[in-house]
Design a protein around this nucleic acid. Structure first.
Lengths: 338, 338
DNA sequence: TTTGTTTACTTAATCGTTTTCGTACTTTTA
DNA sequence: TAAAAGTACGAAAACGATTAAGTAAACAAA
């Protein structure tokens, strides 16, 4: 590999001059700069990030921690969109993205924080993980700039989708379609679930809805088997709901299957709505009614805020950025004449 | 950050001794080693990858080039599974994964190869890209260890799913169900498409099937609108097919919608099959019949072969590894009484 | 006893950059 | 015309590790 030393020899100047010329320092003559850049290009010079990082303590590399309990990681149909958007944004700003090794089986493995220090990440984004993992906590409490997605830590920047407003909008939408007997199969216990569930109850109250306890069920996120079972239970109720809300789009398909198995028609006989707005939902029939998350903005915002924090640690205000989703009307929620 | 120098001072030995002790060289006394490791741990020492890379010319970092024309990148429902499996495997072996910046809009951007040199990747995996991009070619032809997925370059390791056998198995499966009028909407022109298409024709011939030209259509991968239109055309034929094969699972849903819109029932009136075996296909009703790719093995194999090549460049044999998929029977291909 | 062999370290160079400080020369200012 | 300022570059140290070569002490062999 051609290094600055090679260029310096070819140009008959010192290495220091080459470095300064390539970095456009003002104390190098215009002529010299031009010549050095020219020769560097001709020789196919590429800087060495390791060496640069060693001196400057900046890697222009961002660590990504992305691995939920279910180990879905990259295949998660909601978070993969967020990550994709994050990637585009950091790359536009000249940063790279490296995954924090989350393989926990190696004997000589490093903790998340150790790994981050080892690689010298300028900043870290955390999403889709077990936020109660001690290693995650250690990472968040370190002095490395961190942004979390969909989880709020004390005194750290977080990008959150607005689950309160999302659920409110979704429930209100369903209500406005004339539904009054509305069931909600919520996800497993988590901050996200709690936001949505309490928003569900509050909105129901505001709308004057009566939600019997048997209308509220739990099923793990993305678990179609669980939603299938719970949906059956709801359908078996003496006074079944006219609409069922699901933890997420993917899980809703389990419920839809249960409904179809009973010979019921969506949305004629019963309505359903998901949450997230994953791509496939718009390409099936009937199109899934859902609360569509703005994954593009969530990812981009996380990237922007993280880079801001990295580059201006003093002046960046630690805040929670809330991203609004919107109801995607679809065709799975029908109108009920009152 | 605590460095080897700090440890050497705390232990009263030289930096060299610390380095050798931590790396378990044989010329350091057992007692000393133990003491140094102990102190290093107590002081919270973490090695510095940049410095290490500078000396050893090994980064233990693998570059990932992953960005197709459609810019689906991480959200691709087939490749994201492959990538996930790749990630697990390299992480188990102590390697990290960094994306090669594929943002082409920055003025001062590097080419893929320059970026790879800049970061000093030990090896590179390429998938899901435009393989005719000159920058991709430049990268493949460089001296950096490379493994490609689903594309074969001259004298480079490739992991390929067996499209010939896959299509043969799928078509044979459909044939054995009694179908004789089988249409195939294939993907846009690519090596993958050509393998499948020629395998389709050859298998049809072997089975003694007559495939009229109007049964063969083209639609871009993952394009549900295109498959919707092409399916309508097929249904409008005077002698329509009894079964339609699609470019991929995702695209097949466009066709399924067209069929449903015509009031036809799957698989009573007409059968369909996809390709890939994406997760959602197994969670919808009727379950999609498809050729299920072994994404886990493709990713793992790519990782294994790449690491093999990195660590034993001389003795590693350059080969094409072919991974078999299997027919997932599903419920969208019905039986036809002959 | 002398020589040779181990053992257990240390010295010092090096990887490719950046950056502070210095220096020689030129230009401006009083 | 002498001092001050500015310009363009170089020398050298440093970042945090690795490693070849050297050395001193302990031990074994002749």
């Amino acid at each position: 590999m051609v290094s600055m030393k090679d260029i310096s020899m070819a140009c008959g100047v010192s290495v220091a001059t080459v470095s300064k010329a390539l970095n456009d320092h003002k104390d190098i003559g215009e002529e010299t700069k031009k010549r050095i850049k020219q020769i560097a290009k001709e020789m196919g010079y590429v800087p060495n990030s390791a060496s640069k990082a060693l001196k400057t303590r900046r890697t222009y590399n961002i660590g990504v921690l992305f691995a939920d309990e279910a180990r879905s990681g990259l295949t998660h149909d909601y978070f993969s969109y967020v990550l994709d958007s994050f990637k585009r944004t950091v790359e536009e700003q000249g940063y790279d993205m490296t995954f924090i090794n989350c393989c926990k089986t190696r004997a000589d493995r490093m903790s998340y924080l150790e790994h981050a220090r080892y690689r010298g990440f300028d900043g870290i984004v955390i999403a889709c993980v077990d936020f109660y993992d001690p290693e995650v906590l250690e990472l968040v409490r370190s002095d490395i700039p961190v942004v979390t997605i969909d989880h709020l830590f004390n005194n750290r920047i977080a990008i959150m989708s607005n689950n309160v407003k999302g659920m409110k909008d979704l429930l209100t939408f369903v209500y406005n379609k004339g539904h009054r007997r509305i069931a909600y199969i919520h996800g497993a216990d988590s901050a996200v679930t709690q936001s949505r569930l309490s928003s569900f109850y509050r909105t129901a109250q505001e709308l004057g809805l009566d939600i019997p306890d048997e209308y509220i069920k739990e099923a793990a996120y993305r678990d179609t088997d669980a939603t299938f079972v719970k949906t059956m239970e709801l359908l078996d109720l003496p006074n079944p709901p006219t609409c069922i809300l699901y933890p997420d789009d993917f899980a809703s398909f389990g419920g839809i299957n249960a409904i179809n198995d009973r010979g019921l028609d969506i949305p004629q006989d019963i309505s359903v709505a998901g949450y997230d707005g994953i791509r496939i939902g718009r390409h099936l029939e009937p199109q899934l009614t859902t609360l569509r998350q703005n994954t593009k903005q969530i990812g981009a915002q996380a990237a922007q805020n993280l880079i801001q924090l990295i580059e201006n640690p003093k002046t960046t205000v630690v805040q929670t950025v809330v991203i609004e989703g919107e109801v995607y009307e679809g065709k799975t929620v029908g109108t009920i004449e009152l």
